[in-house]
């Protein structure tokens, strides 16, 4: 099972690196916010894999709070971007 967990973490890390690349390149602020949202989803997936590896349920609070906060954060960031573009 260790091989499986390492492989899963590796795949998720590669996905995270690609997402970070998109966040650096942009070109618009919306692209960056979208990449941030995807990165948070990847973090939730990583926490779930960690829970499966350790077979402990302690990280459930972390997982649920990150899932909730990423939604709220993305919604408010998109609203903010909309307001910026209107005033341009």
């Amino acid at each position: 099972m260790t091989v499986v967990f390492t492989l899963t973490f590796g795949l998720l890390a590669a996905a995270g690196l690609l997402t970070l690349w998109r966040m650096l390149r942009g070109p618009r602020t919306l692209d960056r916010v979208l990449a941030l949202d995807v990165l948070l989803v990847l973090i939730v997936a990583g926490v779930a894999v960690g829970m499966a590896a350790s077979m402990r349920g302690l990280d459930v609070v972390l997982l649920l709070s990150v899932a909730l906060l990423s939604f709220i954060g993305s919604v408010s960031a998109v609203r903010l971007v909309e307001r910026w573009e209107e005033h341009r």
Partner: peptide
């Protein structure tokens, strides 16, 4: 997840 990031 990796495919989604690749598409991104």
């Amino acid at each position: 997840c990796l495919l989604g990031a690749l598409g991104l």
